[in-house]
């Protein structure tokens, strides 16, 4: 049996549920672990005693992104980048300090192309596949975003970019069971086996890799 992990969960005060409530709900659904990531504007709202495991950097410009990566890399285990803007997506894939590029398709286009995909593969940046579009969006907006996601998944498969699946949950009502996430990933061209890896091995390897990097630096 796989150890399923979700590394894109937003807890209180950014989300609506506390970490304990989310952990309880995730455990009941079949996850073995969840990792809270906070968007960078909300990071300071968390008390020092319970800082999130990861940060999702929101940046307006590439320069701002680099500055924030430099700031967060020592204090956060997982460095994700809030994708959407094409320049930000590319800059995130170019930087080997970044672990995950979350939802690059939230802009005008699908967000990544063959150049970005090659950079992501070279710098070991994983693509974060947020499946919350299925229950948070409707009709035409959903079909547009899913088309972008499908294109991104096929690019990642072609160029060997790691994919991770997250529910991008802000409350326990946004969490879905691993078997449901796998069924949804199946609609985005991921096979059962690939979805299994995206939900278990890939996120675990990101958490471990970061720990190894810190140990090596010490």
């Amino acid at each position: 049996m796989h150890a399923y992990v979700d590394i894109g969960v937003h807890a209180f005060p950014e989300g609506a549920d506390t970490l304990k409530r989310l952990t309880l709900a995730a455990y009941q659904l079949g996850f073995s672990q969840i990792a809270v990531t906070a968007h960078s504007p909300h990071w300071s709202q968390f008390p020092d005693s319970s800082l999130p495991l990861g940060v999702e950097i929101v940046a307006a410009t590439v320069r701002d992104l680099r500055k924030k990566i430099a700031f967060f890399r020592d204090i956060s285990t997982i460095i994700s980048v809030h994708g959407g803007d094409e320049r930000i997506n590319r800059a995130a894939c170019k930087d080997d300090r970044v672990d995950v590029l979350m939802h690059p398709e939230r802009g005008k286009y699908s967000g990544i192309n063959q150049v970005t995909a090659k950079l992501a593969e070279k710098n070991e940046v994983a693509l974060g596949l947020s499946l919350d579009y299925f229950w948070k969006t409707e009709e035409l907006q959903r079909s547009r975003l899913l088309a972008f996601q499908r294109r991104n998944v096929s690019l990642c498969k072609k160029f060997g970019v790691q994919v991770i699946i997250t529910s991008d949950a802000y409350s326990h009502l946004d969490l879905r069971a691993p078997r449901q996430l796998k069924a949804l990933a199946g609609l985005l061209l991921l096979s059962d086996w690939e979805a299994d890896i995206a939900l278990s091995k890939a996120p675990l390897s990101i958490i471990k890799r970061r720990g190894q990097k810190i140990e090596a630096n010490l």
Binding site: E14, G15, K20, R21, Y170
Partner: peptide, 17 residues
């Protein structure tokens, strides 16, 4: 503000909180 961001009615906590 928080519940509106998450599109829910309640803040969820546990007894431990």
């Amino acid at each position: 503000k928080t519940v509106d961001r998450a599109d829910v009615q309640f803040i969820g906590i546990t007894i431990d909180d």
